[in-house]
Design a protein around this nucleic acid. Structure first.
Lengths: 143, 143
DNA sequence: GATAGGGCCTGTAGCCGCTACAGGGTCAAG
DNA sequence: CTTGACCCTGTAGCGGCTACAGGCCCTATC
């Protein structure tokens, strides 16, 4: 009955490097269409599913969100439309990655200077703890 | 009854740049001790809470997880212990940030090359979509 | 035919660190 | 006495999975 080129979920998982639960998750959230079912109610995937899941995996590896991927998949099907929107999603994501890098680099500098402050003595005189604790606020005093 | 230097949750929120809900959340997960309550069951915070929440905020701004902050707070109280463990947490976090930067930079290069592939024509010939789609796997063919 | 073991099914809860309600009570000013 | 800002509790949601529990199915072996 079932053609040879159909895949059970485990086989699809191995073929794409995705966990079985993740595949079911993608189905639940509508990224992967519901597959056909075997006599025993097993999911049965064909080449289209494999291609689509591979696309999703690649995009996830590149850090696109599921929402972005949903949009990309939709756009990829409009093959004679201009690809501006595709480009825009990719550029937006690239910019976000670049912003994150800049943020993390600022963090890295702060953390490096924090770590540098440790004088390897008691906690009481540890520059790290000092740097995290609020300053005694010299000058203004209550009461 | 309530001393002047006690703060309601909103005042503490303003003083530390934290949202009210976040303060309650920190209390729930045990990062902030339960404060005293006013006659009308309002939370009432003193200087110790202010200092502790400021510490938490700073550490959060530096990207420490709540678990790490919990550990840091615990260690910060053992003032005559060696500060090795404090240093270790900070170093671990710094290393993780550095790993994330490296990962994102690799991503950035991939995304830049992806974006570069767009030829601004139809989706059908878009290099971005091509790069995300599985290759036709020339050579091996089923059946 | 019985059984062992893998794989598959559904449904639900958990992770992190909040955030956002709903549906009330409290309090100070006018 | 009313307004309106503040506060309370409790619960659900975000993204993107992951990890169960408690079952069914399918194949291989005896």
């Amino acid at each position: 009955m079932a053609p040879e080129n159909m895949l059970a979920i485990g086989a699809l998982a191995r073929a794409t490097g995705t966990k079985v639960e993740t595949i079911r998750w993608y189905e639940r959230v509508g990224l992967l269409p519901h597959p056909a079912r075997s006599a025993g109610n097993y999911r049965s995937y064909g080449a289209a599913h494999l291609a689509r899941l591979s696309f999703i995996r690649r995009a996830r590896d590149l850090g696109f969100s599921l929402e972005q991927i949903r949009a990309l998949l939709g756009l990829a099907e409009q093959r004679d439309q201009p690809c501006e929107a595709v480009d825009a999603i990719a550029r937006t994501h690239l910019e976000e990655v670049e912003r994150k890098i800049a943020d993390l680099q600022a963090l890295q500098r702060e953390l490096a200077s924090l770590v540098h402050r440790c004088r390897h003595g008691k906690v009481a005189e540890c520059g790290i703890v000092e740097a995290l604790s609020p300053r005694p606020d010299m000058g203004a005093a209550a009461g």
